[in-house]
Design a protein around this nucleic acid. Structure first.
Ligand code: FES
Ligand code: FES
Lengths: 144, 144
DNA sequence: TTTATTTCGGATATTTTTATCCTATTTATA
DNA sequence: TATAAATAGGATAAAAATATCCGAAATAAA
């Protein structure tokens, strides 16, 4: 469904959010340990998220990754997915036709569109805040 | 969403079904042309579908790929997807945890499961027959 | 039985994704 | 200003997915 990079990206954002609530910046090393991902690869994904302005980075001593405490509830899963995997999953054809087009649909278009749109809606309606709170409360987990 | 291999596999099955209604067997060459896919790679995918008993192959002169005319309505999209991409898309965790487990859920589990289950249901309820008829009637397309 | 046709399957090549490594640049503090 | 701590980013490696090639095996018909 999502690429490995995207899975790591989502989990990383959640961990960053949790720490940002407490004013703490985190490093790729800490993140990778917490979400069980390869560190250097995770660092690359974080760079991409910074470029797309999903998270911030502060360079130099006492730096790290963070996200504005007041923005956490406004950041949606869809932004993270779009930053890393692009928007093919939202708009692309389920059978790989050049583009999904009502006027030139693939055989599964009608049925696929329903599912794809629901996925899109789910990602757009899910905030980093609720995912982070979910982890903090111990109701869900980032690894194993 | 689906792998390239799976996209080709689904389209190939539809084309085979259409021809099987008319008692005609088709070759990887014809299939690849009709669905706009690399021929040799498509042949490999057809082999996998044969191994999983989704379609039949007849070797030798006047051979080719076919599917029992009376089975077309019983073959579901889910069988094709499962044969090629496995069942991770049905059962796997959206964030890549080892397994999707109610008792050790990832942060998106609850919301992801809803979408994943709907996808599963859609694939299980969509038959090769309806897809083939859809193409025959000119209502949908296999390429461009 | 020979021949032409066709799938099967192993070997290999290419491309994309995933992962690692190393150096440059930035920045807070001593 | 010097130093240590961090991210940025380029180069490279490894693994997986996609794609190609070719000979072996099977089969129908001449
Ligand atoms: S054309 Fe294939 S999903 Fe819309
Ligand atoms: S645990 Fe992640 S989807 Fe169920």
């Amino acid at each position: 469904m999502f690429s490995k990079a995207c899975e790591y990206g989502i989990k990383a954002c959640i961990f960053i959010a949790i720490n940002s609530y407490e004013g703490k910046r985190v490093s790729p090393k800490e993140i990778a340990e917490e979400i069980n991902s390869p560190q250097a690869f995770t660092a690359k994904i974080l760079q991409a998220l910074v470029r797309h302005k999903v998270i911030n980075s502060i360079k130099g001593a006492y730096g790290g990754f963070e996200v504005s405490k007041y923005e956490i509830k406004n950041i949606k899963l869809s932004q993270i997915v779009k930053a890393i995997d692009g928007d093919n999953i939202y708009n692309g054809c389920g059978l790989g036709l050049e583009k999904c087009d009502e006027n030139h649909p693939c055989p599964v278009h009608d049925k696929f569109k329903v599912v794809r749109d629901e996925l899109k809606l789910m990602l757009e309606n899910t905030s980093l805040e609720e995912l982070a709170l979910n982890i903090k409360s111990g109701a869900s987990f980032l690894k194993t």
